[in-house]
């Protein structure tokens, strides 16, 4: 199956045997600190015990971004097998040097480009969120653009199944994930159902429930009391949020909720929630973002930063 050369033909010919579609998938990023297999096994056992459901056939990207410089090179094959034991399917490698990339190719792993930002990505992405939210429309279109870039780049790459490193990267303009190389066109990567950012442009009414499986949810209209928004990723509401918003419903504690006017019945991130009566005291009817730190749900006003 030579995708690159057949692409143009397929678009014009009458009965294509397949379609190439872009897709954005949330992937667990396993940031390896060192190659100590024994410690990895112990830590994974603990993590799996915390959330067993999360590790069932979950695709993961092995990241070496924070790998200790002096530590010996990791045994990729052993790590892959170890992860598999715990239900994590390693589908790609990020931040690897050339030597490791060769090994990865032998293991049928996709190679992802190194992340732009240094290990402390969380804070920097928070800044991005904060400043971008000043102009909601821009954020929405930026996201769409970035997603589009991802789609474009994926299309140029062989292999129908596309991967997307982490949701945070969606918001770093221009840092759309690029699959530098994809191996395993004969054996497609075992990824979950295709999912991507869900954009809703009409009001979400009382009694309606909208779930963005595997990605972010963006609502460009008010959300009424009695409506429910759910997303595996972040939730953005460019309007009044009067209903319930549950981000990171599959346990993603890095997920956030953004809204233009906080009038919510409930805001939840990865199961940690605040009810209307607790929300009313601060920032009521203001633009806010909700994030989770150490099992505490924080509500902060959205402000322009650094401009």
């Amino acid at each position: 199956m030579n995708v690159d050369s057949s692409l143009a033909v397929d678009q014009s010919s009458h009965a294509p045997s397949f379609r190439l579609k872009g897709g954005l998938f949330p992937l667990t990023l396993l940031e390896l600190a060192n190659g100590d297999l024994q410690r990895l096994r112990e830590d994974l056992t603990l993590k799996v015990a915390e959330a067993p459901a999360f590790f069932q056939q979950a695709p993961a990207v092995l990241s070496l971004d924070v790998y200790e410089d002096e530590a010996p090179a990791p045994d990729l094959h052993a790590i892959q097998q170890l992860c598999l034991e715990f239900g994590l399917i390693v589908v790609a490698l990020r931040g690897a040097n050339e030597e490791l990339q060769t090994t990865a190719k032998e293991l049928n792993l996709a190679i992802l480009s190194n992340s732009r930002s240094k290990p402390n990505t969380k804070t920097s992405s928070a800044d991005t969120h904060g400043s971008e939210a000043v102009d909601p429309q821009t954020t929405a279109s930026d996201t769409a653009d970035t997603a589009q870039t991802a789609v474009d780049s994926d299309t140029s790459v062989s292999g129908g199944d596309t991967t997307e490193p982490v949701t945070e990267d969606l918001f770093e303009a221009g840092s759309a994930p690029v699959l530098e190389d994809a191996i395993g066109t004969e054996t497609p990567i075992n990824s979950p159902d295709p999912t991507q950012t869900k954009v809703i442009t009409t009001p979400v009414r009382s009694g309606q429930q909208i779930y963005a499986a595997g990605g972010d949810l963006i609502v460009l209209a008010p959300v009424s009391a009695g409506a429910e928004l759910l997303a595996d990723g972040n939730i953005h509401v460019y309007g009044a949020l009067r209903g319930r918003a549950l981000a990171g419903v599959k346990g993603n504690t890095a997920a956030r909720v953004f809204c233009q006017s906080l009038e919510a019945e409930l805001i939840s991130i990865a199961g940690y929630f605040k009810l209307n009566e607790d929300l009313r005291d601060t920032h009521w009817k203001q633009s806010i973002q909700a994030s989770l730190t150490d099992e505490t749900l924080n509500i902060e006003p959205l402000k322009a930063r650094g401009r």
Binding site: T202, R205, S206, G207, Q208, S224, A225, G226, A227
Partner: peptide, 23 residues
């Protein structure tokens, strides 16, 4: 008002036009 909101939701999701992808 809340009941009206609910019925608006049903209109835009369960009616024939909604099923046909129209509003």
């Amino acid at each position: 008002v809340r009941d009206s909101d609910r019925i608006l939701g049903i209109l835009q999701s369960k009616s024939r036009r909604a099923e046909l992808g129209q509003t």
